[in-house]
Design a protein around this nucleic acid. Structure first.
Lengths: 186, 186
DNA sequence: ACCTGAACACCGTTCAAGT
DNA sequence: ACCTGAACACCGTTCAAGT
């Protein structure tokens, strides 16, 4: 395993265990066993090391969505499953999720990875539309709306703002409400 | 104007002009004209100064929503207007919005201010439901869902992720799509 | 009560060397 | 090529004084 990959893995791990503030280049370097500025030999800056973490996670989600899409499940089940994969990631790795959500300015490779994740998601939504599980509006518009809602819910959840008084009990329940309301009546 | 209030105003201003990283206690103090650790005489820490900024903004939005609710406009217009107020705030003051979105752990006064903002918003949504502009599901659940969607869109927009290829052209357009799809067919 | 300035323990980053 | 350690310019925070 190359030093660069070890640094990315260490940064991810620190992100999960202590949040973004715990990811200092000194801590990352120490976790890998190199001197405190060895990271600069592999990444331009702390930001670009974090960019590598973000891109890796987007590609992982992208792969998960593609596998789902290529499975034989019913379209609506693929969608539900994709929503769950995304929501689970957000809940289990909140610090990484937050970085991904605020990835602006982290470079083109992150941008591309984020886009490919969305493309896979949108393809599943399109399958649902074709199967008449969702209303007949332009696929990407609908995918964008569902994606934004899911992202909003995950973000609220990550801040402990999903409370019954706020009309939000869980991500899954709220997404079910949305999909139920969107389902064409015909 | 008390020093404490001046510090909050300076922090807000720095937040708008340079983002969260620009809000160092040294910069805030200098903007107010006091020594670099005078803020500690008014706030426990940098975090609690930021908490004051967050709470102030939530209360401002809460007031705006209450004024809207007490106006004589049609329920659906009140809702559209509330959505616009919130979206405009998110677009014009992205750094402040991001802090509000990630307000977890900033203390009870922030929590309360955030909750009162939601309560006002939910009241407007409830008016729409009563007027049959929205489907007949429990008011706060619906309010929570609409709020999460709006928040998701603002968050995506703040990260330059509202692109036509992603099915998201603008916050307003996407919210119109949602409200249109939610409108009961009856 | 309110403020000041030195001091401390961190950071990210740069630079000149080392193998 | 890859790594190291001193050094710099910042931070948040604490503390002992000052008015």
């Amino acid at each position: 395993m190359s030093t660069a990959k070890k640094l990315v893995a260490a940064a991810s791990s620190l992100l999960d265990s202590g949040g973004e503030n715990a990811v200092t280049l000194r801590a990352v370097a120490q976790a890998v066993g190199v001197s405190y500025n060895a990271p600069y030999k592999h990444f331009e800056s702390r930001k670009s090391l974090l960019a590598a973490v973000i891109a890796e996670d987007f590609l992982m989600l992208s792969d998960a969505f593609r596998n789902l899409r290529e499975s034989t499940a019913a379209p609506i089940d693929k969608l539900r499953c994709a929503l769950k994969v995304f929501a689970d990631f957000g809940q289990e790795k909140p610090a990484r999720y937050r970085l991904m959500a605020n990835h602006d300015g982290h470079g083109d490779s992150v941008e591309e990875a984020a886009f490919s994740t969305f493309v896979e998601f949108a393809a599943i939504v399109e399958e649902c539309r074709v199967a008449a599980d969702l209303p007949d509006v332009s696929g990407t518009n609908l995918a964008g709306l569902i994606f934004a809602t899911l992202h909003g819910l995950i973000s609220l959840d990550a801040n402990a703002r999903l409370k019954p008084e706020k009309g939000l009990t869980s991500i899954g329940e709220s997404m079910d409400l949305l999909l139920g309301l969107l389902r064409p009546s015909k």
